[in-house]
Lab assay of single mutants.
Amino acid sequence: MPGGGPEMDDYMETLKDEEDALWENVECNRHMLSRYINPAKLTPYLRQCKVIDEQDEDEVLNAPMLPSKINRAGRLLDILHTKGQRGYVVFLESLEFYYPELYKLVTGKEPTRRFSTIVVEEGHEGLTHFLMNEVIKLQQQMKAKDLQRCELLARLRQLEDEKKQMTLTRVELLTFQERYYKMKEERDSYNDELVKVKDDNYNLAMRYAQLSEEKNMAVMRSRDLQLEIDQLKHRLNKMEEECKLERNQSLKLKNDIENRPKKEQVLELERENEMLKTKNQELQSIIQAGKRSLPDSDKAILDILEHDRKEALEDRQELVNRIYNLQEEARQAEELRDKYLEEKEDLELKCSTLGKDCEMYKHRMNTVMLQLEEVERERDQAFHSRDEAQTQYSQCLIEKDKYRKQIRELEEKNDEMRIEMVRREACIVNLESKLRRLSKDSNNLDQSLPRNLPVTIISQDFGDASPRTNGQEADDSSTSEESPEDSKYFLPYHPPQRRMNLKGIQLQRAKS
Results as ranks from 00 to 15, higher is better:
Gly5His: 15
Glu121Ser: 14
Pro44Trp: 00
Arg72Met: 00
Leu131Met: 04
Arg72Gly: 01
Asp146Trp: 09
Glu7Ser: 10
Ile37Trp: 01
Tyr88Thr: 08
Pro39Ser: 05
Lys143Glu: 07
Gly108Glu: 07
Glu96Arg: 08
Glu18Pro: 12
Glu134Ser: 15
His31Met: 12
Glu125Arg: 08
Tyr88Asn: 07
Leu66Thr: 00
Met65Ser: 05
Ala63Trp: 01
Ser34Phe: 00
Ala40Gly: 07
His31Glu: 05
Met32Pro: 04
Arg30Ile: 02
Asn29Trp: 01
Glu7His: 11
Ala63Tyr: 10
Phe91Ala: 04
Gly4Lys: 13
Met32His: 09
Tyr98Asn: 15
Thr107Phe: 00
Tyr11Val: 12
Tyr36Gly: 09
Ile70Lys: 02
Asp53Tyr: 05
Leu77Gly: 04
Leu15Asn: 11
Glu57Pro: 00
Tyr88Val: 09
Ala21Glu: 09
Gln48Thr: 06
His124Phe: 07
Leu33Cys: 05
Leu77Ala: 03
Leu102Thr: 04
Asn71Val: 10
Ile79Met: 06
Glu121Asn: 08
Met132Ala: 06
Tyr11Ala: 13
His31Pro: 01
Lys16Leu: 11
Asp146Arg: 09
Thr43Ser: 04
Phe130Glu: 08
Leu33Lys: 02
Arg72Leu: 00
Ser68Lys: 00
Leu33Ala: 01
Phe91Gln: 06
Lys41Gly: 04
Leu105Glu: 07
Thr43His: 02
Lys50His: 10
Leu77Ile: 12
Ala144Leu: 13
Val51Pro: 02
Glu93Arg: 11
Ile52His: 02
Thr112Gln: 15
Asn133Val: 08
His81Gly: 07
Ile70Met: 13
Arg30Pro: 01
Met32Trp: 04
Asn71Asp: 00
Lys137Gly: 09
Leu80Ala: 03
Lys41Ser: 04
Lys104Met: 00
Gln140Arg: 14
Thr82Tyr: 06
Pro64Arg: 03
Val135Trp: 04
Gly87Ser: 05
Asp17Cys: 12
Thr82Gln: 06
Leu33Gly: 00
Glu110Phe: 08
Pro64Leu: 08
Gln139Lys: 13
Gly123Ala: 15
Thr112His: 14
Ala21Pro: 12
Arg30Cys: 03
Asp10Pro: 14
Val26Ala: 10
Val106Ala: 06
Arg86Lys: 12
Leu102Lys: 00
Asn38Lys: 01
Leu22His: 06
Leu42Tyr: 00
Gln139Asp: 06
Val60Glu: 02
Gly84Gln: 05
Glu13Asn: 14
Tyr103Leu: 00
Glu110Lys: 08
Ser68Leu: 13
Glu101Lys: 15
Tyr36Arg: 08
Ser34Met: 04
Leu80Gly: 03
Glu96Pro: 03
Met132Trp: 08
Lys16Phe: 12
Ile118Ser: 08
Pro111Ala: 15
Val106Leu: 05
Gly5Asp: 13
His129Gly: 09
His81Thr: 05
Val106Gly: 02
His124Ala: 15
Glu27Ser: 05
Pro39His: 03
Ser68Trp: 02
Asn29Asp: 04
Met12His: 09
Leu22Ala: 09
Glu13Gly: 13
His81Arg: 10
Glu7Lys: 10
Leu138Thr: 10
Glu57Met: 02
Pro67Ser: 11
Glu7Asn: 12
